[in-house]
Every structure is written in C-alpha cells, then in structure tokens.
C-alpha cells in the first residue's frame, strides 16, 4: 500500500485517498472546446514519473499534487494543490 505524506495530516495509508486525474488533464475554463476535449480525453499515460491530483477523501479533504513513479510506486513529493 502507498504511504502518502499529507502536508496537513502527516503520513497516512493510501486507502484514505482517492486518485482523481493527472495534472495535465485538468480542463481550464478558458479552453476552446477542442482543447478541452483533448485535455479530458487523452493522456500521456506515462510508464515513468507522473504528476497526479489526489484527494484526501477520508481525511482532511485537501486536494494534493502527488509526484509518483507508475512502475515502482515511489513518491517523490506531496504538496497541497
């Protein structure tokens, strides 16, 4: 299981958190529809380091940016969004 170091709560089990999407998949309100569609519906899907948006759903409910390796599951950094 991942151990995610929430900046507010400290190290907590991954089961308290929910993955939402990669950072590059956040649709900005100013986007034209074609860009919004591309942002929402295509992913780099890296087999490597990835910046992800997680939610401390069963904790402090902070949205977090987690930099994580998708093969080893190593976590480099966690910061509040």
């Amino acid at each position: 299981m991942l151990l995610i170091d929430c900046p507010h709560c400290g190290p907590r089990a991954q089961s308290e958190f929910a993955y939402d999407r990669t950072l590059d998949a956040i649709v900005q309100l100013a986007m034209v529809p074609s860009d919004a569609m591309t942002t929402l519906y295509t992913r780099a899907n890296p087999r490597d380091w990835s910046d992800e948006l997680w939610h401390h759903r069963s904790g402090c409910r902070t949205w977090l940016v987690v930099r994580r390796q998708t093969v080893t599951h190593a976590i480099e950094s966690v910061r509040a969004c």
Binding site: Y41, R43, A44, N45, R47
Partner: peptide, 18 residues
C-alpha cells in the same frame, strides 16, 4: 496494458490510462 508507452513512440496520446 502498454498501449500508452507504445503509442507514445509514434507521438500519439490515447484515451487510455493503465
């Protein structure tokens, strides 16, 4: 399972997440 990394070799991003 690896469609993302293989398609990336051709410069293509897909509506797929592993």
């Amino acid at each position: 399972g690896n469609s993302g990394p293989v398609a990336a070799l051709a410069g293509i991003e897909l509506p797929i997440e592993a």
